[in-house]
Design a protein around this nucleic acid. Sequence first.
DNA 1: ATGCTTTCAGCAATCGATTTCACAGTCAAG
DNA 2: CTTGACTGTGAAATCGATTGCTGAAAGCAT
Lengths: 341, 341
Amino acid sequence: MITIYDVAARAGVSPATVSRVFNGIKVSPERVVAVRLAASELGFVPNRNARRLRTSSSEIITMMIPDIENPFFTVMTRAVEDIARADGYSVMLCNTDEDPEREQEYLRVAVSDPVAGVILAPSSGSTKLDLAVERGVPVVCVDRHAAGPAVDTVVADNLMGATASARLAWEAGYRRVACISGPENVETADDRYRGWMSAYRESTGTEPPAELVVRTKYTVAGGEAATRQLLALPDPPDAIFAANNKLASGAIRALAAAGRMPPEVGVVSFGGLPLVLLVPAGVMVSHLPARQLGLTAATMLLERIRGLKGPAREVVLPVVISDEDEGFSLIEGHSESVRAL
Amino acid sequence: MITIYDVAARAGVSPATVSRVFNGIKVSPERVVAVRLAASELGFVPNRNARRLRTSSSEIITMMIPDIENPFFTVMTRAVEDIARADGYSVMLCNTDEDPEREQEYLRVAVSDPVAGVILAPSSGSTKLDLAVERGVPVVCVDRHAAGPAVDTVVADNLMGATASARLAWEAGYRRVACISGPENVETADDRYRGWMSAYRESTGTEPPAELVVRTKYTVAGGEAATRQLLALPDPPDAIFAANNKLASGAIRALAAAGRMPPEVGVVSFGGLPLVLLVPAGVMVSHLPARQLGLTAATMLLERIRGLKGPAREVVLPVVISDEDEGFSLIEGHSESVRAL
DNA sequence: ATGCTTTCAGCAATCGATTTCACAGTCAAG
DNA sequence: CTTGACTGTGAAATCGATTGCTGAAAGCAT
C-alpha cells in the first residue's frame, strides 16, 4: 500500500506537505508539481479510512428504503443521489425489506461508521432513531414518520391524495368501491385507508362497511389475495382502490385470473407504475411525487450536514391526480427537475 | 464520542481487553460481564473507521449498476444483498448512469475506501478495472464484460436468448421484424442485435436489411423515437424486437400513439417487465435471469474475498423463453432461490 | 517444593492521513 | 536597522481500535 510517506520520500518533502497538496492547502508551486508527479508515478491513492478516522467525517449518505424493487423508492433514491453527488457525497443504499430489526441493524452500522447523514423511509411507525440522534448523525425521514425524537420529515399528502384518488372511482361511475391497503401501523397505509373512507362517505353518504376493506402486505401477492377475497363476497365490489402500485398490480392480476378485467371491475392505483405498458380502460392512476420527495429530503439533509440547527421541519408534498398515463415523466428527464429545485 | 478507553476505565480493565471482548477473543467471564455492562451504560459504539484502518478490512461490498431505475438491475441488486447479508456484508449501491467517467470515479472511491469487493455491471466494453485489480480488491463483472485484466464474470446468454426470443415473432406469424437495440459498444446490445440477425436469417433465408435496425440509448424515450423512425419507413415492419425492457416499453408507447397497437404490430421484449399490468396480445416477453445473475456474482465475489485464488472464471446463464407473463416470479418469493443456490 | 506449560491481561506500537505548533525566512513599516 | 506580521514547511501528536510481545499467575507433573 502506497502511503503519503512514500510519496513524501520520493518527492523530497514531508508527509504534511503531501497531505496539503491533496487537500488544496497552499503549497509552493514547485512542490505541488513534485508531489503530484511522485504520487502518479507511485500510483498513490489516499486511504479514506485513515482520513475519516482523523477527521471523523465521511462523504457517504446512507439511504434506507423498505423495498428496493419498488420503482417508487428507486426513483426517490435516484433523486437523492443526484442532489448528493452534486455536493460530493456518495449514496449508500440499504434495503430494509420492511423489517424493523434489519432497519435497526443498518442504522447501527451507519451510526458507527459514522456516515455524514441518513435518509430513512421508516419501515414502521415505531422505528427508533435515538441511536443516530444521540451520536449527532443528521437524519431525515421520507415518505413516513418515525417515532421518538423529532427529525426533519418529508411526506406526500397521502390523506388528501388518497381521498381524491378514491373519488375517481365513483366519478367514473362505479358504485361499490373496496379498499386494499398496506399493513396496520404503517403510516402510509393508514392514511390512504382513511382517504378512501373519506371519499366513501362523501360519495355515498353512508359509512364504509368493514367487509370492503382488506389490509395486507405491500406486495403483488398481497394484492392478489385481497382481491380474491373481495370477489368472493356475497355482494362483491365493482371497483377497487389499491393503496400502492404493487397492490394495484396484484389486484389487476387477480381480476384477470377471475375473468373480470377492468373496466368491468375498476381499479384505482395510488402510486404510479413506471415501465407499465398500457393502462387499460377502467384503471385510474395517481402519481406520487417520488422524485420530489427524494430531492427535498436530500436537500434538507445536506443543510443539516452543513450544520443547520433548529427544530425539526416537516414538508408535505401534494399528490397529483390524473387518470392519464404520466408514469414516464417519473423515470426520465431528471436534469430539469434538479435545476428546478 | 465514547471510546474503548472510556469503557476500559469504567470496567477497570485495559483497552485491549475491551477490544477482545468485542471481537470474541477469550477473556475471563467476569471481565466480559464488566466490559459489557460498562459499554452498555456508556452507550459505546465501536468506531468502524478506526477498526478498518487498523485491520485494513471492511465489511462493505460495492455494487455498481448503470441504471438504478431499471427493475432488471434492482432485482439483481436485491439478490446480491441477500447473499452478502448472510455473510455479514453490507451492500453499497452506486448508480453509474451508463457514464464511464462516473463509473471510474466510483471505482476510485471504492478502491481507496477500500471496500471488501466490487460487483460491477460495466457501462461499456471499455471499462478499466486496473485500479481495483492493482490494489487487490476483488471484482466480479455481471451482465457484461469489462476490458483489461480478466476478472470473474457472470453474464446471461444474450446471443442464444435473443435468437430464440426474436424467433417468437416469426413463429407468431409476423413477417417483417425490426430490431431496436442499445448503443454500439455495449456488449448486451451487440449480442442481442446479433441474436436478432440470426433469427432473421434463419426465418427468412435472407440477409437482414440495415433499415430495420435502430441502435439507441437503453431508455423508454430511445425506444419511442426508434419506433417512430421505423414506422415512417416506406415499407414499415409488422413487428419489433426490442433488446431490453425499457426499449420495449417505448416501442409500445409509440405504437399506441400511432394507433398501431399490438397485435397489429407485434413486440418482443427481451427482458421482463416487473409490475407490468397486462401483457396485451401480440407482446412477447422473455425473462432474463436477473436474480440468478446477482446470486451467482455475489457468491463468486465472496469466494474471492475469502481468498480464493486462480484464474478468472466465467459463468453464462441461460435465458428462459416464454410468451407467458412470468414477470412476478422475478420479484417475489426470494427465500427459496437463496436456499437453492 | 521445583520447574515447565499454558492462559490471560496489559503495555505500547501500529494503521495512514490530518493538523497543531514552532521555526525559519520574507517583506514592509517605523 | 529593528520590529512585527506573514508564509510556507516540517516534526510530532492525534484520531480509535487492534495486536505482537511480555510478564504474572495458575495448572500440572515430577
